[in-house]
């Protein structure tokens, strides 16, 4: 398959994730949609690595995975902390920092 197909799939996945971040209100699902966006970017990186025949893009994808895992850990810790304080688990309701 041509590299362009992979890039198309990655763009579609990224946009589904982006739409999900805007539409959904549960922070857990928002985190899942962020994962989708990162995965779309990962697919594009690996596709470009294949296109150039070098492994630099794969290294980049692995680093993105590390960052995504860290982000998920901190995000889920926040969700657990929100739950412990009996606050609503809803990104629209959590507006203490709104100013």
């Amino acid at each position: 398959m041509a590299i362009g197909w992979y890039l198309t799939v990655s763009a579609i996945i990224f946009c589904i994730g982006g739409g999900g971040v805007m539409v959904r209100r549960n922070p857990l699902v928002v985190l899942l949609c962020l994962e989708l966006m990162l995965n779309g970017a990962n697919l594009a990186l690996v596709a470009f690595a294949r296109m150039w025949g070098t492994e630099d893009g794969q290294i980049f994808a692995l680093i993105v995975m590390v960052v995504a895992a860290c982000e998920v850990t901190v995000g889920l810790g926040l969700v657990v902390a929100i739950y412990r304080r009996r606050l609503p688990i809803d990104v629209d309701e959590l507006s203490e920092l709104h100013g």
């Binding site: 041509a2 763009a11 990224f14 946009c15 589904i16 982006g18």
Partner: peptide, 29 residues
């Protein structure tokens, strides 16, 4: 939200597939 996502998808596809890079339409190195 969905409208924005759709517009972004179309734009990304146009940007990547219409970039004129030779490698994009090839099967890779």
């Amino acid at each position: 939200g969905p409208l924005f996502a759709l517009a972004l998808a179309v734009e990304l596809c146009i940007a990547m597939l219409g970039a004129g890079l030779k490698g994009v339409s090839s099967k890779g190195a």
